[in-house]
């Protein structure tokens, strides 16, 4: 049954998400083309460049938010409006309904987050490449590879410098960033779903209540994260290591990931509990 729910959930969300993703891809391609030209070589072009970069950043943010909010809206509309009469009388358990929305939603959220990252990387790469080529930097490829390839901190390059300051290599940083993104996406999705479920508990103005709950949950999440991040800070006060920034930055990401992980578990349990409660549909 869950598989069937997944199938229909995927089909229903495909159209909108593909449109959004296509828009992002087009935007990226357009950006790549523009960066490959010499438009920005004049000083007059600087404000223009700043504007375009700003617009680009805004578009990315908008896309990320739009994805999330579309998924929230779909959750609400499919389960708690007219269509809810269909979904809740299907021979499935409430958990299966929740999981179908979580799984498909998560896939889309991750996909979009990945596309955004790829988009940024593409543009950064094209910009850098174009700059290097037009300024006659030879052997740029070799240099880049040399700078990035070596993981060992003993080597004399940018990576080593990075390690000395932050306590880990850029690769490790990336790895942790990816973990943060994986768990963070899940938590973002869940936050919306749990807010909608909580909103359903209120007699009137369920949607407005959901918005209120969303803000509350978001703030609670931030507070919890901040509290947890104090731990490495406190550790520094207690211990007396020479390079305190080193250990702080090294642990910071780890604690951020941990906090999100814990929040994710709590929110998931809440979602399961609320879904099982049997809704009172209008």
């Amino acid at each position: 049954m869950l598989r069937k729910l997944l199938k229909y959930e995927w089909r229903a969300t495909c159209k909108v998400m593909v449109i959004m993703d296509s828009a992002l891809i087009l935007l990226t391609l357009a950006g790549c083309c523009i960066l490959h030209t010499d438009i920005f070589n004049h000083t007059d072009a600087v404000p223009m460049a700043v504007l375009m970069v700003t617009l680009y950043a805004l578009s990315l943010t908008a896309l990320g938010i739009a994805t999330l909010f579309y998924l929230y809206f779909r959750f609400y509309r499919n389960l708690f409006t007219q269509e809810g009469y269909l979904m809740h009388t299907l021979p499935v358990t409430p958990l299966q309904l929740l999981h179908s929305k979580l799984i498909v939603g998560y896939i889309w959220t991750l996909l979009n987050a990945s596309l955004i990252m790829v988009s940024i990387l593409c543009l950064a790469f094209v910009a850098g490449y174009h700059f290097a080529v037009t300024h006659g930097m030879d052997g740029i490829w070799d240099r880049m590879i040399k700078e990035l390839a070596l993981e060992s901190p003993a080597a004399e390059n940018g990576i080593n410098a990075f390690y000395k300051i932050f306590g880990y290599t850029p690769l490790e940083f990336f790895r942790q960033l990816i973990w943060l993104q994986l768990i963070g996406s899940f938590v973002s999705l869940l936050t919306g779903y749990v807010s909608i479920l909580l909103g359903q508990l209120i007699e009137k103005y369920k949607l407005m209540a959901s918005v209120g709950f969303y803000i509350a949950l978001y703030i609670i999440n931030q507070i919890f994260c901040s509290i947890l991040m104090l731990v490495p800070g406190l550790q520094i006060l207690v211990q007396d290591t020479g390079n305190f920034l080193y250990s702080y930055y090294r642990d910071m990401m780890g604690y951020a990931i941990l906090s999100q992980f814990l929040v994710g578990i709590v929110f998931y349990i809440a979602a399961v509990f609320l879904m099982r409660r049997r809704v009172n549909l209008d």
Binding site: Y85, H88, T89, R277, R278, V279, N280, L281
Partner: peptide, 9 residues
């Protein structure tokens, strides 16, 4: 009817 159908508890 909604109770029997499972829409209310």
């Amino acid at each position: 009817i909604k109770l029997i159908a499972g829409l209310l508890s």
